[in-house]
Design a binder for these strands. Sequence first.
DNA 1: CGGATCGTTGATCAACTTCAACGGTCGTGG
DNA 2: CCACGACCGTTGAAGTTGATCAACGATCCG
Lengths: 199, 199
Amino acid sequence: MSFMTDLTPFKNHILKKVPLTEAELTEFMSFFTPLRIKKRQFVVQPNFVAKARNYVIHGAFRGYVVGNAGEEHTIQFAIDDWWISDYNSYIFQQPATMFVVAVEDSWVMQIEYEKEAQLKALHHKYETFFRITAERSTASMQRRLIANLTKTAEERFDEFEEKYHLIAERMPQYAIASYLGMTSEYLSKLRNKRLSKKS
Amino acid sequence: MSFMTDLTPFKNHILKKVPLTEAELTEFMSFFTPLRIKKRQFVVQPNFVAKARNYVIHGAFRGYVVGNAGEEHTIQFAIDDWWISDYNSYIFQQPATMFVVAVEDSWVMQIEYEKEAQLKALHHKYETFFRITAERSTASMQRRLIANLTKTAEERFDEFEEKYHLIAERMPQYAIASYLGMTSEYLSKLRNKRLSKKS
DNA sequence: CGGATCGTTGATCAACTTCAACGGTCGTGG
DNA sequence: CCACGACCGTTGAAGTTGATCAACGATCCG
């Protein structure tokens, strides 16, 4: 059983961002709840406030919004060692617009908004951890925004396969297509074109 | 002269996020340099590290990247009371991909990376300020990403005019078009269609 | 006054979508 | 354990959104 919730990756994830003593690390982690999420289970749903932020120990998640015509648009993926939630909902504690669903049976470390607030207040270094987390997520969103604005569907697809093949392998194609802002039919055609080129 | 660098909006901006005493506020602000930036002057350029983050006292800025074919893609706007920089460059202190240019003669409060690091270390509350800033900018990027993925060019245009008409009034149309991910010709046609509809 | 810059307009074009149909696979209930 | 249905990826034909190209007029600024 213990191998399913091996917390060393989580510890390393924290220590990479901010140097904590053993005691501090223990205290920090005590604010999180390890949680098993089964495939197809939702951790965030539209119109409900995202009460928690989730660090994926292992497993896979997908965050998406549903458009007027019922189409899904993937906003975030998360696999082992990534965070996921509806940040706009979580940060402002307002109703979510996103679904976040487990794509595989997963384990997460979950922290609730109130707990996180306490944690941030408790120690300057704990606050620093969340500051760094937020800064990096701003930077990565900026990179994605730039990619979406400057590249064609085909270029985005190539870039994604190259950078995130670990994710590509674990997610359905329609999810990747909607993440890249195209239909799954078109992605399928691109992929096919690619295969024939790769002599 | 003093009216040109009236700092009360900046003070309020800080106090809205984190409660500081008069003395703390003074200390906090002492890490910033008020700077006059003339129209068409650049504060960030590709291949140079974005050394600073800029709070706009008054004026207007535009951040954009240049694509392979020479097209400009606007990533950020900033007018009075907004922050601007190339965050991916600034946060990681790596070469920028963006230009950030003054669209009007402007005044900014500028803080350099090293100074900001000192400030964050100096006091828990100062760190909190930057944490909140980063969190909100993550949330707003998420909202923009969702808008780009879920809405048509026309819907994005409508939404922009409604939410950011203050910006729309001060920026050239081609900048807005590229922010919304369309050509300026197409934006012009949308705008025209709109005028004839508004019986 | 003259040149550069910006927005506009129309004609043509390409990227990507939509719709429809099909085959494979997976998981679930009988 | 089999059979059925749901879901997923694929393929092709036709349709649309938005891009490209080119030309023009207005405005601003030096």
